[in-house]
Simulated assay, not measured.
Amino acid sequence: MAQSIVLVTGGSRGIGAAACLRAVELGHAVAVNYVHNKAAADAVVAKIEARGGAAFAIQGNVQSEADVLAIFAACDEHGQLAALVNNAGIVDYPARVDEMSAERLTRMFAVNVVGSFLCSREAVKRMSTRHGGKGGAIVNVGSAASKLGSASQYVDYAASKGAIDTMTVGLALEVADEGIRVNGIRPGIIDTDIHASGGLPDRVAKIEANLPMKRAGTADEVAKAIMWLLSEEASYTTGAILDVSGGRAILP
């Protein structure tokens, strides 16, 4: 019998890596997708194997359709897809909208939106009962920024995550009777290195005293929420978007 697989895009660091480590609890083999850092992905695989789980790393950039097809083909070689976590995403340096280039916007939406659509398309083709699949689950990683707007910082990022919210609801309704549940999460300020990649390495330290819980969240706290949405405990939950933001709603 082919092993079941959960694919986590952007699985070599941050929330993605934490989700990969937690996915062992569901009994699936874990496909750890990465773009550049093979060593980091291999380290996540090693940690999963040390916990008695099965895992493998797959290189590929979700903004490339060819790469997405290759990622899913690699999963097919290892077993049967049971779940997808659309986690891969990027931010850019803080800027106002009137300072943003077309190149920046194109890249932002290619990775954060088009990539999630392409991966969801391929997952549905494999999991939907309409296509001969056995069902499954998709969790889209959005952001509290989709509700806050991220003015003077990342309006483009916030808008891309707003698109993910909309996709989550629409796709959930589209495949609800095909054995696939589609849900989303909106993390708030989470202590990962994504802030450094956006040019604000000390962002958490500067604002956590102003957060409702007076601290940032952890990647593992988000991963636990992802795993609940993927699990059978959430068997009647689809089209839902869960805020994992420590109560952050309107604070900058």
Rank of each mutant, 00 (worst) to 15 (best):
E77I: 03
L81K: 09
V35H: 00
A57D: 06
G11Y: 08
A57I: 04
V44R: 03
A18I: 13
K47L: 11
K47G: 01
R22G: 10
V62Y: 10
G53E: 00
A83F: 00
A73F: 08
L84K: 02
N87K: 11
G60I: 12
I71L: 11
N87Q: 09
A29H: 12
G10M: 09
G27Q: 03
A39Q: 14
K47V: 05
K38A: 15
V45F: 09
E25A: 15
V45N: 07
A43F: 08
N86F: 03
Y93A: 10
V97E: 09
V97I: 15
E77F: 01
E25C: 07
A95G: 05
V45Y: 07
A18Q: 09
G16K: 05
I58N: 07
A31C: 05
R96E: 08
L21I: 12
K38M: 08
F56D: 05
A17W: 05
E65G: 03
A70E: 14
S64W: 07
Q59M: 13
D67I: 11
I48M: 01
D67Y: 12
Q59C: 14
A39Y: 03
A19V: 15
A73L: 11
Q63A: 15
V32A: 01
A39W: 05
A23D: 13
A29T: 14
G89I: 03
Y34W: 07
R13A: 14
A66H: 05
A41K: 03
L69D: 08
A39H: 08
G14K: 09
S12L: 02
L81F: 10
I90S: 05
V97L: 15
V8E: 11
E65D: 09
N61A: 14
G52P: 03
R22H: 12
A29P: 10
Y93I: 08
G16L: 08
C75Q: 03
A57M: 10
D92K: 13
Q80L: 11
A54E: 04
N86C: 12
A39T: 14
A82E: 07
V32H: 00
G79F: 00
A29G: 15
A43Q: 12
A57C: 11
H28C: 15
V30L: 09
V8A: 08
N37S: 15
G79I: 02
G52E: 10
R96W: 10
E77G: 05
S12P: 04
A54C: 06
V30W: 01
A70G: 11
R13M: 11
A39K: 14
G27T: 00
E65R: 13
V85M: 08
A66N: 04
L69I: 03
T9R: 06
S64Q: 14
V32T: 00
V24M: 09
A88I: 05
G16P: 01
E65P: 01
R51V: 04
A40F: 00
A95Q: 07
C75P: 00
A66T: 06
P94F: 04
A57V: 09
E77Y: 05
E65F: 10
G60W: 06
R51M: 14
T9G: 06
G60L: 13
A23F: 13
Q63L: 10
A50R: 07
A23E: 14
A29I: 11
I15Y: 13
A46V: 11
N87M: 09
L69P: 03
K38F: 06
R13P: 01
R96C: 09
G10E: 12
G79R: 01
Y34E: 04
R22L: 08
